[in-house]
Write a protein that binds this DNA or RNA. Structure first.
Lengths: 327, 327
DNA sequence: TCGAGGGTGACAACCGTTTGCCATGTGTTG
DNA sequence: CAACACATGGCAAACGGTTGTCACCCTCGA
């Protein structure tokens, strides 16, 4: 069941078989048909590694995440999965366990077995990212570095909306619950928050930073309560969800005593108690778009896209974790 | 940066380099050291496809799921990811989109680029599964077919506990919310439910089947309500969670008017409203174990394990969606 | 001193495809 | 009718490793 067998069976050269199978226009309709029939007959299955060795193309793209455990990535996984399959690529999953070192190390090791990679929220310093991009086609998500194509979800713009929402409900003391300090998204969100509050002549406060994960919600909730704020915007839904449980434990009413808004709108945000007001991010779409961007650069026949970075809008989904300020 | 370069740099043959790198015991300490130093120096990175072509081993294992969207698989993905990385394998993700045809088709196509595969809840008929297993090392999860190693989560045993729990709360009319008809797990759960109820001389009812997905919760909730039951066990948490929202919409109190128990204990079951009583399944562990099983058969040097199938226990986690029968 | 044996490294075949280059045959054009 | 272009298919050289086989050398025992 190699192309040599097919060649023998049909009496043509292996090169012809190869062409009939992978570049059908290169052979005449008659032989092509004959060869394809034989292939079907012998139920031939191509050998990807051999193909990769000879052609340099592996037909595989990796999705690199910092922690598969984070529900935020579930959406990304879905999105990339869909689009990669559609484009005929295999989907490799790499977990860097929150370590930048591991990130470059794994990527370096797998470089030759990948056609490209999608970095979901890379922790790499900008220069390392650029260096890596020179080695292997990359698209980043939620991480904008000059020279590396990327798709970013415009949560910062959404944050302005969220602040607007809270202010309109009468809140004056709103605090930002900060995520990991090295996180690009976290910084962007905090900046946006500060700017938005300043437009209302309100002082921006923050608590944290806290490590990723729902467990951080406990400490975060306590910190927010301690800050005396009446509303807060959390770095992400995982934090917010964690806070909700903690607040419930402590008997703090949401939104009666404290309004909470999250970011991302991950699985669960709609059925938590109370359902979470959050910035809905088109995560899945981001994944799909990242793949499109990557695949179109991989396909050299396709026209290279002008814009190397796409920004996706976010919108505020008001549920029940935010409410008017009560005196 | 191929082994030929290293060979040239150190003045030995490529075969020696190859051995120094992949079978270090086969060369003397002196040359090995010299070669490894040179490799580091030239920063050589092995070429996986070439290796795969020559050796037949790809160092890649696929996790095959019916729908990446299902949170049940999130746990599996985590588990397999961890263990595969630990064992030095790359992790390929395949989504069959609930189609058995697609399942065998994809697996056939990728066969040569995989060392093995883990089937999370395969939809394949038994004979097809066995045929496939002859072609490529397989381990199934929650699917027990003679001759194919597997790890199954013993939810059925847990169902007995759940029924016990409900009966002890006074419930006499408890209904099973059925999942996809072809699902092996669904059948096993229903059987277990029936048996458990019969032990209490109670009649087993069921509603459904419903297609996978949270959305089914709506129809399911209505059906359960219509059945007149005072308690139900849902095929999985996704259903149960969906039901919870629907019941809330309809103003039905849980557990006041209806007790609900789910299966699996997926992400979200603990912070839903009310938190869900469910059968906690060690999903992540199942993933890890499946990998262990697979990897140990791949490694021919390792002693082949006797037991080809592992069963993992499940336990009842009582939260707030179940309560005493109220007249 | 000689032969045996174990350890070390080299040779070369092979894994299954792709692809650049060339030879042939066919149709088109002037 | 000749010359030419083009379409088609074949040859063979890669691609980057692994591995079976074998030759060599060194050491040790008789």
């Amino acid at each position: 069941m190699t192309i040599a067998d097919i060649a023998a069976a049909t009496g043509v050269a292996v090169s012809t078989v190869s062409r009939a199978l992978s570049r059908p226009s290169r052979v005449s309709a008659a032989t092509r048909e004959r060869i394809q029939a034989a292939a079907r007959e012998l139920d031939y299955v191509p050998h990807p590694p051999a193909r990769a060795l000879a052609s340099g193309r592996t037909g595989t793209v990796a999705l690199v995440v910092s922690d598969v455990t984070n529900p935020f990535y579930f959406g990304m996984i879905r999105g990339t999965q869909q689009q990669l399959t559609a484009a005929g690529y295999a989907h490799l999953l790499i977990d860097t366990e929150d370590s930048a070192d591991r990130e470059v190390e794994m990527l370096r090791a797998m470089r030759r077995s990948l056609d490209g990679a999608i970095l979901g929220a890379s922790r790499l310093p900008a220069r390392a990212l650029v260096a890596l991009a020179a080695d292997i086609p990359l698209v980043t998500v939620n991480r904008n570095v000059r020279g590396v194509p990327s798709v970013v979800i415009d949560t910062p713009a959404g944050i302005a909306q969220a602040v607007e929402h809270l202010v309109s409900l009468g809140h004056r003391d709103v605090v930002y619950v900060s995520g990991p300090a090295q996180s690009w998204s976290n910084q962007a969100r905090w900046q946006a928050m500060r700017a938005a509050l300043e437009r209302h002549h309100l002082r921006a406060q923050r608590v944290g930073p806290f490590p990723p994960g729902r467990a951080s919600g406990t400490a975060a909730a306590d910190a927010v309560l301690n800050s005396g704020a009446t509303a807060c915007v959390a770095f992400n839904d995982l934090f917010a969800l964690g806070m909700l449980t903690r607040l419930r434990e402590r008997g703090v009413r949401v939104p009666g005593d404290l309004s909470v808004v999250g970011c991302d709108d991950i699985f669960g945000a709609d059925f938590s108690n109370p359902p979470l007001t959050t910035l809905t991010a088109p995560i899945e779409q981001a994944g799909r778009m990242a793949v499109s961007l990557l695949v179109s650069r991989l396909d050299h026949r396709a026209p290279q896209p002008q814009r190397r970075t796409a920004v996706l809008p976010t919108y505020l989904t008001v549920r029940e974790s935010t409410g008017p300020l009560t005196v």
